[in-house]
Each structure stands twice: as structure tokens, then as C-alpha cells.
Simulated scan of single mutants.
Amino acid sequence: MNRVVMTAQVVERRAMRYTPAGLPALDLSLKHESEVTEAGRPRKVSVEIRAVGIGAVAEQLQKLAVGSTAGFAGFLGSQRNGKGVLFHVTELEPI
């Protein structure tokens, strides 16, 4: 299973673009910070990840201001250049 769910802040949002199939696509960067328990001890976690929304979710993402926080769900894939991880957002829950 490949499913990611997180609360994150929008730190960068690029202009809307369109896929070769004509679907709207929006690239953004998300930052998550929290404290989790690992091996019985608290650990601070901070991660910034590149993300993309395609189709209707891209239009929803475009409405989020940079600096706003929301709940995101989706899956991980590789970036177009094959280097690194890309979070494909399929669900959005504004907070």
C-alpha cells in the first residue's frame, strides 16, 4: 500500500499548468512539523516535500494561500526527472 496522510503548510505554490492530456496540474512544496514517538522516545520531525495535484484537486490547491495549513492525502511517486520523491495529492481538507 502506498498512502500518505499529513497536515502540512504550503511553502511554495507554482502557476497552474496543464498535462498533455489537458488536465490542470499544480506543483507545490509542503512542510510538515510534528513530534512523534519512536522506540519509546519523543522525536521532532520536520520535512519539506515536493507535491503535485492533478485534475479537480489542482483547482482546490490553487485556492490555498502560501503559508496556509491543510490536511493532505495521496501517494508517493518519483519526480519527472527520476530523482527524488513526489507526493501526489489526491485529497485535500482545509483547516
Rank of each mutant, 00 (worst) to 15 (best):
T69G: 01
T37G: 11
N81Y: 11
L76I: 13
K31D: 11
E48R: 11
F75N: 10
L64H: 00
A70N: 01
L61I: 07
R50M: 15
R80M: 15
S68H: 01
E35N: 09
V66S: 02
A58G: 03
L30A: 01
Q62N: 14
K63S: 10
G55M: 14
A73S: 12
S68C: 00
S46T: 12
Q60A: 13
K31A: 12
N81S: 14
S29Q: 13
Q62T: 03
S46Y: 03
Q60Y: 06
G55Y: 12
G55E: 09
L30H: 00
V45G: 04
G71R: 07
P42C: 08
E33H: 05
I49V: 14
F72Q: 01
Q79W: 07
G53D: 04
G67N: 01
S34W: 07
E59L: 12
G67D: 02
K63T: 09
L76D: 09
K63E: 12
Q79I: 08
G40A: 06
A58D: 03
E33I: 03
A65G: 12
V52I: 15
H32N: 10
S78R: 15
H32R: 10
G74S: 04
V36S: 08
V57C: 08
L76K: 08
S78Y: 15
A56W: 10
G74V: 02
S29R: 11
E35D: 10
R41P: 08
A65V: 02
V52L: 14
E35W: 09
K63D: 04
A39M: 13
V66G: 02
F75Q: 12
K44N: 05
E59D: 13
K63V: 06
S29D: 15
L64Y: 02
R41N: 13
S29N: 12
T69P: 00
Q60V: 06
